[in-house]
Design a protein around this nucleic acid. Structure first.
Lengths: 238, 238
DNA sequence: ACCTGAACACCGTTCAAGT
DNA sequence: ACCTGAACACCGTTCAAGT
């Protein structure tokens, strides 16, 4: 099914060669094409040869994530906590656009590697340097969730509205009638852009909207002194 | 590997019986135990018998999600948009606590079923009834992301700090030294609670913190008239 | 000592044979 | 016409045989 474009490699196998080949294979053919067997074939070796460089498939995926996370831009200097966090997270998002399979793999990982811990530690450090108390920083990191990695979990794709006489619209006329609010939302953004062209920009704006709601909320709670007293507090404004 | 607790059933197979058995199997033995083969064995039938009631495994998982979503409490009356949204999402979260496998399955679904669309449509309707313009509602729904389903994507579990003489702490002493900010955060919450006992409550508070930052942000933008003019706006306060 | 092919224990699903 | 067992085309990984 997967064409072995480079059935032969030059030079000896190494962990780096294996991981880079895995990322290239995922970039080109999707993550479902990355099996130990097909990756070995891509490298022109027998499947078991890979086990000399990665303990098992989990470790292969961990290594792929490490390569991705290493692409995220380092913290900016002198942008303030908000600007620094914002730039890094948007940089993470740019990385993911180059590796569309990465969110799925990232969310499947169960143990953080050293490189992943470095990134998290660095993000936390930015909040702390910005004057955030430990308690608030703790909440804030969890509130970011997967946004920390440049993506959000949009579970179900918003159905597209029935486009005039076009019969291929994902939302049929009767579906639209049954879910009027959904149809309204699905229509809201696509009217001023040329179909699929503008969708990438919409996704970017949606991501930044959610990110900024959170960052602004964090800023407000910080300014109000959240966590600087003993009492446990919720996030709601008083 | 999986013990067929009820290797025999009474009465004929039906779609409902199959789906409920799948949910019960996932509840009891985890989602990885739900294969077409093991589910069939659990029901005392041959694997192919299931294909009379679900087209394939994807449809089985869709049906399982439908059963879960149907457990979410209906909208409250007269709680205002904020209270209504908050109660439903926290209800969704209660449902997930009874079915810990559900988030993983929900996030793997690619097409929304009618029941899922009903839930989304209803949530959107609550914002609209609360006076939210279409544009803002659109952004707000995306900003909620998976929180809409009662969970967030905590990708990597926060490492636990080295607990005194306890050698089993996930974060070793040298790891703690390398990631000082992470250690500080990991320590922040666990000091006032008795180890694993209080962790469930912490998770609940973390979820509500993030949810409330978003809901408060939505409220503020709505009050400021976001989306009621022609101009496209970001989420940042002016 | 190293490499590797066959084999194991699983999948979801197809398909044809048996009733 | 219906049910079902064997088979197909995959997995990740073990293990022993061959060099």
């Amino acid at each position: 099914m997967v064409k072995p474009v480079h059935a032969r490699r030059r030079g000896p196998l190494s962990r780096g060669v294996v991981l880079r080949a895995a990322v290239a294979l995922a970039d080109g053919a999707g993550i479902e094409a990355v099996s130990m067997r097909s990756l070995a074939q891509e490298l022109g070796v027998v499947p078991m040869a890979l086990y000399k460089h990665v303990a098992n498939k989990d470790e292969l995926l961990d290594g792929m994530v490490d390569l991705i996370v290493a692409e995220i831009a380092p913290p900016t200097q002198d942008a303030g906590w908000k600007g620094t966090i914002r730039q890094r997270i948007l940089s993470a998002r740019q990385v993911l656009l180059r590796h569309p399979w990465a969110p799925e793999v990232i969310k499947s990982r169960t143990n953080a590697t050293a490189i992943v811990l470095d990134y998290m530690n660095s993000l936390i450090g930015t909040f702390r340097a910005g004057g955030f108390p430990v308690d608030l920083t703790h909440q804030v990191i969890h509130a970011l969730g997967s946004r920390m990695w440049g993506f959000t979990l949009e579970v179900f794709p918003m159905p597209s509205p029935p486009a005039g006489p076009d019969p291929g619209g994902a939302m049929s006329r009767q579906t639209a009638a049954r879910y009027p609010h959904l149809m309204e939302i699905a229509t809201a953004r696509s009217d001023d852009e040329g179909g699929t062209v503008g969708r990438g920009r919409d996704l970017q704006l949606e991501f930044e909207f959610g990110l900024d709601v959170l960052l602004d909320g964090f800023e407000r709670l910080h300014q109000q002194g959240w966590g600087s007293t003993d009492a446990r507090q919720g996030a709601s404004a008083v």
